[in-house]
């Protein structure tokens, strides 16, 4: 009984700590949301700590009118294409790595593992020159190609670890039915590796949606601007109008909130497997 009470006091303090961190962690997010619903005057005159008395969606209307829809679509195109290519390419490679006993294949895989340590910043200058020479500067495709390349090592590593666990008998069973390599990948490996594939996809979607360096270096015109760049541009144009910039921030994070609400488990798994790189 005595021990139980001591634990309870400890628990209470620990819970208090949890609440404090909840405030530190979530209050700024709450601030973003409430500020985005303020009028410009309300921001300058009202108390910044409490939600506005007369919330307004005016800021969101302004955000959408100033070209954010275009950026939203650009971000969607880039992220969806990037994720599709990453998933297909790394799935195919991981199947070959797991199922082929060949020195060259293992060497390729080892290079991919080394590739985990390549920082994007170390290669960005030559990538910029290369994309320019390919005539892809200031295009959506020009962003997609290097994003896929830098996501491949991690995605492949995660999938290799997963595909390795598929029992040999299943491959043999399909082999007797006369399936070829491609049929095995798409009819056996892909369905079995579905949780890992979803984790890779959700994680890489967040990564490419929020990517900043590639768009910053590889694009310039408004027609191909993606959301993170649009926010910076927007902030520069509305330095004093905080509520409208906060509305832009919320607007750009909507898909990720939806992804977290409906696929939070996969996102967390993807982050754990992905080490947050």
């Amino acid at each position: 009984m005595k021990a139980f009470r001591r634990v309870s006091v400890g628990n209470l303090l620990f819970t208090l700590f949890g609440v404090v961190w909840l405030i530190i962690g979530c209050y700024p997010v709450f601030y973003i949301l409430t500020t985005s619903l303020r009028s410009q005057n309300g921001y300058l005159l009202g108390n910044p700590w409490v939600p506005p008395i007369h919330p307004t969606f005016q800021n969101y209307a302004q955000v959408i009118q100033s070209g954010f829809l275009r950026s939203f679509i650009n971000s969607a195109i880039v992220s969806v294409c990037t994720v599709l290519l990453i998933v297909v390419f790394s799935l195919l490679l991981s199947y070959v790595v797991v199922r082929t006993r060949n020195r060259a294949v293992q060497t390729v895989f080892n290079w991919f593992v080394v590739g985990l340590a390549i920082p994007v910043q170390a290669a960005i200058i030559p990538v910029y020159i290369l994309i320019t020479k390919l005539g892809l500067y200031d295009t959506l495709l020009g962003m997609i190609l290097p994003m896929v390349a830098f996501a491949l090592p991690l995605s492949t590593l995660i999938l290799v670890n997963f595909v390795r666990d598929i029992p040999n008998e299943l491959y043999e069973a399909m082999g007797i039915e006369g399936a070829n390599d491609f049929q095995i990948v798409f009819r056996l490996v892909a369905p079995l590796a579905r949780p890992a594939l979803i984790s890779v996809a959700v994680y890489q979607f967040v990564q490419s949606w929020n990517n900043f360096l590639f768009p910053l270096v590889l694009t310039q015109s408004a027609g191909v601007r993606v959301l993170p760049l649009a926010i910076v541009q927007f902030q520069g144009e509305h330095t004093m109008d905080v509520p409208v910039t906060m509305a832009a921030v919320v607007f750009s994070a909507i898909p990720l909130f939806l992804a977290y609400i409906f696929g939070g488990r996969y996102l967390r798994q993807g982050m754990l497997a992905g080490f947050g790189k």
């Binding site: 590739g115 390549i118 170390a122 290097p146 491609f182």
Partner: peptide, 22 residues
């Protein structure tokens, strides 16, 4: 041959836009 084809996209992308640029 089919396995070589399967590896190729990932290897080409990784080499062209990550490894060689570095």
């Amino acid at each position: 041959l089919s396995r070589l084809l399967m590896m190729l996209p990932a290897v080409i992308f990784f080499a062209a836009f990550a490894l060689i640029p570095m």
